[in-house]
Design a binder for these strands. Sequence first.
DNA 1: TCTGGGGTCCTAGGACCC
DNA 2: TCTGGGGTCCTAGGACCC
Length: 425
Amino acid sequence: MRPVIGLCDCNNFYVSCERVFAPSLEGQPVGVLSNNDGCIIARSQELKDLDIPMGQPAFQIPPSVRKKITLCSSNYALYGDMSRRVTETLRARCPAIETYSIDESFLFFDGFSLDDLDTHCQRMRYEVKRNTGIPVSIGLSTSRTLAKIANHRAKKDPACAGVCWLDPDSITMQELLEQLPVDEVWGVSRRLGDRLAAMGITTAWQLRQADPKHIRSRFSVVQEKLVWELRGHDCIETESLTKKQNIMTSRSFGRATDNRFDVKEAIRMHAQHGAEKLRKQGSEAQGILVFMKTNRHRMDQLQYNPSIVIPLVSPSNDPRTILAAATEGFDRIWKDGYRYAKAGVMMLDTVDTGSAPKDLFDDTDSQDKQRRQALLNTIDKLNAQMGRDTLSFGGKRETAPWHLRRQHLSKRFTTCWCELPLAHV
DNA sequence: TCTGGGGTCCTAGGACCC
DNA sequence: TCTGGGGTCCTAGGACCC
């Protein structure tokens, strides 16, 4: 018997997080918006039932519908912390766990008896709900791809009560795969789906029956693995995702701007956040990429989307080094006369801190290095305790045009003392 | 007025080497 | 007609994910 893999997925995660602290939203159509209150990125079932699609720009929702629904700005401080709490609860019942995204984790049930698994998973669901208020569903099979499919069924079929085990070689599995359009399989999107359809493969079952070698020759090793996954063989690795090779920090601006100072300030902020993310994962970047963009939707405006890579002399996560490189990059690509709508910085080709060979020309003595490290540790500690950007290099203005629009933001209920929910007696 | 922000992996093809 | 053959490394770009 192959080992059982589970996929635990939080139901409508962002919406569920909002509902934990606003119970009146229960049963109501609720959506969560992307940064800048731009597009719908999460929907409650009630909102899905109103045929509001994923990715819909908020301003395109008809006023008649807009009146009936609640839209929230995204609150990543809240969602990130809730996600951590969900994972902690799961880990207590299943130590072999692999976080896949903010709302999904793979669970590895090696050594568990199949007979007890349903009860065990029901208990996990109950505990997550009790400890965090978040409803989850668990799908079980023998590969990640099939666990994903089982999870979908766990959500949709009331008879499952939130947990669904699918034997890869059962009739039930075959029937399910025969009804599943191939482009709804994890890893197959519309484009690939069209190419498969041209070969006569339109259902997940047909893909499973296809010759893996043939699929590999027509597509790539990724799609070949998919065939094996559909047959119940676990062959997709996801755990290498722990340390990021590149770290992107970027945001669209609340308002577009042609002001050099504004854009530079945004880039400097992203550079500092990037350096902070590097230190958090114990990495140093070997180079940084700086970019800015005009609004691609405004065809009536001049477009300019420059980017530049600035290599670092030696790998670094020191905000002053990163800032200097980002500023240099900015100065080299900046042009007057455009209305910029977005800017960002990417930390490139990260390596473990201290793993790089020593730079021969680096004459900083070790005492200097220690002082520098102590300073960075203090900055990180303060920002972690007191909130992001409590301490930063160069001031920031609350009114800068690049600040996010967040008109419907909930509180940081679980990560900020001054925003704890209040109980009224 | 208004349209997200991250990531990963794979392949093809060029540069370069012996 | 025919222009060596095999290998590595790097990068750009495509495709997909949440």
